[in-house]
């Protein structure tokens, strides 16, 4: 059905290598999220899978068949673009049905499919409007509608929610997850939003300068990051990274400890620290502290922690939550 495999897929624009060689196997029906900093090649990799960008070398298999040279429409994939990329001169109906028309489907069947998609996406009353007469959220739905009517084996999303406001984003996120459940299709989703990645993904692919740093379930990446890069990238607020003397005590070049894995005490602990700033979020309080040789650290305290700037506290890391890294930034495993 909808398996997608990259076999050492490489992409260079002229002399500039963007993707040095990516290998990845995506299972049928899986929800895979690509994350990474801006410019790391997420969109490029997605576009290579879509067929909008040629591979410099390597291969792409979809459903076990070599699709490296196949035209985008022959790959059985639909794409939702960040800019929505709706056809501005066509009505919502025209936008959703365009792919079906191109496939030469009979009129009656197109009608039925468009009606069904519009109903699922709450677009029925907007079918005769032009995209410019719609709100951002509605345009997004049209883009998704255009993708689902073709009944593809897989969906490709390139930061589909980044142009929406926060509340709408949460809603759409839930809708896309629901859609994934209902359709059971393979989905690849590009984002640089932590929360989207953690909440939506079956597996997360972390990219760094075009290289796949690590692939794993959200909790695997959270609990067992393979590298400093992944450790720093996954989790919010960021993991505290400490190198030098304090790290040597743990036989590591660098150690990492997440803000939520530090115990706070007023009497004693592993490290002493001075509070410099407290962020009160209601359910949590994030303390930014100066921990002397360990440098600046972030600590999460549950609830409303009454913290005066300048106050002295002691921090104790949970021993089995300490991540150790060698000098190349690779994780040291026991």
């Amino acid at each position: 059905m909808g398996t997608i495999s990259l076999k050492n897929a490489r992409k260079a624009f002229g002399d500039v290598v963007i993707i040095p060689g990516a290998s990845l196997d995506i299972r049928n029906g899986e929800f895979v999220v690509f994350v990474g900093p801006s410019g790391c090649g997420k969109s490029t990799l997605l576009r290579m899978i879509a067929g909008l960008e040629d591979l410099t070398s390597g291969a792409i298999l979809i459903d076990g068949k070599d699709m490296t040279e196949a035209a985008p429409s022959k790959r059985g994939l639909s794409m939702v673009f960040q800019s929505y990329a709706l056809y501005p001169h066509m009505s919502v109906r025209g936008n959703i049905s365009f792919g079906l028309k191109m496939a030469g489907m009979p009129k009656a069947e197109i009608e039925a499919k468009v009606a069904k998609a519009a109903a699922t996406l709450n677009l029925t009353e907007y079918l005769d409007r032009k995209p410019r007469q719609l709100s951002g959220g509605q345009r997004q739905r049209v883009a998704i509608g255009r993708a689902i009517v073709r009944n593809p084996e897989g969906f490709l999303f390139d930061e589909p929610l980044s142009n929406l406001d926060a509340a709408l984003r949460v809603n759409m996120r839930l809708e896309i997850m629901q859609m994934h459940k209902d359709l059971g299709a393979t989905m690849i989703y590009v984002t640089h939003d932590q929360v989207e990645a953690m909440t939506m993904a079956d597996r997360i692919v972390v990219l760094n300068r075009g290289n796949i740093e690590q692939v794993g379930s959200p909790l695997e990446l959270y609990n067992r990051p393979d590298s400093l890069f992944v450790a720093g990238f996954i989790g919010s607020p960021k993991m505290n990274l400490i190198s030098g003397k304090p790290a040597e005590k743990f036989d590591a070049h660098t150690i990492g400890i997440r803000p939520e894995h530090l115990g706070i005490s007023l009497k004693d602990g592993t490290w002493s620290a001075k509070i410099s700033l407290a962020e009160h979020l209601g359910a949590d309080t994030f303390l930014h502290v100066d921990a002397g040789p360990c440098g600046m650290m972030t600590v999460r305290a549950a609830g409303e922690y009454d913290a005066a700037p300048g106050a002295k506290i002691f921090l104790t890391p949970e021993p089995d939550r300490i991540h150790r890294f060698d000098k190349d930034g690779r994780a040291i495993r026991k």
Binding site: L52, S73, S78, F81, A85, F98, M102
Partner: peptide
Amino acid sequence: IPGEILEASRMDGASLGKELLYVLTPM
């Protein structure tokens, strides 16, 4: 004209001729 719109039509299965006729020209 944003190239993504033309790419969208390619994903939708429009041949080059149809892309020019139904998407680019009207825009």
